[in-house]
Design a protein around this nucleic acid. Structure first.
Lengths: 217, 217
DNA sequence: TTCAGGATGGGGTGAATCCCCCAATCCACC
DNA sequence: GGTGGATTGGGGGATTCACCCCATCCTGAA
């Protein structure tokens, strides 16, 4: 029995997913006779980064949505501390915005949790040899999806506050600008995103994952 | 080697979770020497119900959030078509409202995906013998959480439309009532939920899972 | 049978919204 | 040096929202 040459770190906030991935990766014959050895698991973004720095594995299997740090942040940190690690992201929700960001940040693999795992495990050997693979679903999504307009820093701040339920006046106070300017940003925002009410604005923001979901009432 | 006496159906929209649960359930020694046989998997609520009707298993392992039918609907249908099936629900998100509903509908087991699986698998033998087990996290949550005010049917409809970004006038048209009445419901809604703006209303609704997240812009 | 509560509407008021108009500053880019 | 974008701010107006007041109708529980 040969030694596994590849090591992997698995990061997901659900213990069941981690054990499922571990079982699949370590099953013999996937990439090489001995399978891929999972050297560490992480339940949140920060421990994932720590695990990467410590182990510098060949592969990182990573959920997009995690506590403490999202998939994108982990990807960037992983690139910084362990450039040779192939990073494969699993996405539960499918927001065109996030997917686009991940692709443009250069993930090595991008797969959907909803679909069959065959595409993932079929592509893994190639990915470990340096290829890239974005799941069929996401490739179609990126082609069809209307590009999400780029938001300026201020607009993003305003959007966050709107989602948090603040009024123009409150936002003006928080941001230290005139209420009229807040209104201006809000108007531009709604024009950019092609919505026509706070409710639609919030719906859009949450759907696209444009804002941090840590909105304290 | 003894035959497995228990059969299970596993329902989750993520293939990885299903295979992880299958592996764990079928591992020998969990409940009895041969483990629990997973006779069917389902990726959405309707197939879960179909699988229950067809197999009438001893155990149903069920995700709360699924396409086509949620965990609660599947629970109710499972009770109807196969009352002897023990229903165990796994919850990814932790909204006090949904948890309370599930408990009051009489789930046999309720566990969090985020926590360790030890509590689940430790409690499984008891559950199969007729006991009930609600995860520690959720029991504390139900004690501490401020009771979610009961919403009337109309109020729930209005809430859905508000989240979908409709104006009072549009809602009036959809519901076939006066815009003034819509406003009345909306006012009552905000008073009940102790919020003071659309944004907070939407935030509350999404947080508590009071509404279906299938809001088409 | 009374009575509470839900659903239905109308009137009205003050605030906030959505969206036009206008202008100034700053800063990066060609 | 010009050009465009982001950010800042003001005026104004039509609409909507948030929240009071009032009433009627109906259903189910006490």
């Amino acid at each position: 029995m040969s030694e596994p040459r590849f090591q992997a770190v698995v990061a997901d906030d659900h213990a069941i997913v981690r054990s499922g991935l571990r079982a699949a990766l370590e099953s013999p014959g996937l990439v090489e006779p001995a399978g891929i050895k999972v050297v560490a698991e992480a339940a949140d973004g920060l421990s994932a980064i720590a695990a990467i720095r410590q182990n510098r594995p060949s592969l990182l299997l990573l959920d997009v949505q995690m506590p403490l740090a999202g998939g994108l942040e982990v990807l960037i940190e992983a690139r910084r501390w362990s450039p040779e690690t192939r990073v494969v992201v699993l996405s539960g929700v499918t927001s065109p915005g996030k997917i686009g960001e991940l692709v443009s940040c250069g993930v090595d693999g991008l797969f959907s949790k909803g679909e069959d795992n065959d595409e993932l495990f079929g592509a893994l050997p190639g990915i470990l040899r340096g290829r890239r693979h974005v799941a069929e679903v996401f490739r179609r999504m990126l082609e069809e999806a209307p590009a999400v307009p780029a938001l300026s820093e201020r607009e993003r701040q305003v959007l966050n506050l709107v989602v948090a339920g603040r009024s123009n006046k409150e936002m003006a106070q928080v941001l230290g600008i005139s209420a009229k300017t807040v209104d201006r940003h809000r108007t531009n925002l709604m024009q950019k995103l092609d919505v026509h009410s706070v409710a639609q604005l919030i719906a859009y923001a949450l759907r696209e994952g444009l804002i941090a979901p840590t909105s304290g009432l």
